[in-house]
Amino acid sequence: MVLTLLVITVVASFTLASVYNVTKEPIAAAREAARQNAITMVVPEFDRLESRMFLPLTGRDSLEFNFAYKDDELVGVAVGTYTDQGFSGRIRAMVGFYPDGRIVDVVHLQHAETPGLGDKIEKSKSDWSDQFRDFDPATQVLRVTKDGGNVDAITAATITSRAYCDGIQRAYETFIANVKTPEGGAE
């Protein structure tokens, strides 16, 4: 009796291990493709990419900075950022900056927000996130209008909108602290 169960479990584990090994590469490839795709969406055209990790001023996990160069000149930085203030779980997004700190564009990478409300942060669902294009956090405030900022919240999804702003703000602060002065050279 116990033996039968043991045999079944062992067979099942081996089957899963082999399936895992077969799908490991495609899963990694799919994730990498999604990341690359997000980077190209949020920075100007580039021909070389350099990635480095920076610890943000707030939050416990480091952010991935992808420096995009064209003809060896820095044209933009794509920052993989996150926020834990979402409605249900972590939201990850890719924020692109021009070297002077203005935002190029923002795309979401992963979220579990309510379908129909919070999922409007997706570019395919709504043009809500287009308002971040050319947003300049130096002169405008990355908060929803209800909190005294310059970002229009999604109707009936203020929590999600707030969280998204929090994620972008985290990317911006880290960008300013680590990038703008030494390498950006714009000011």
Binding site: T9, A12, S13, L16, A17, Y20
Partner: peptide, 12 residues
């Protein structure tokens, strides 16, 4: 590093 066994171990 066997997190892919999550579902099966949890249900057991």
């Amino acid at each position: 590093q066997i997190t892919y066994l999550q579902t099966i171990s949890y249900i057991l």
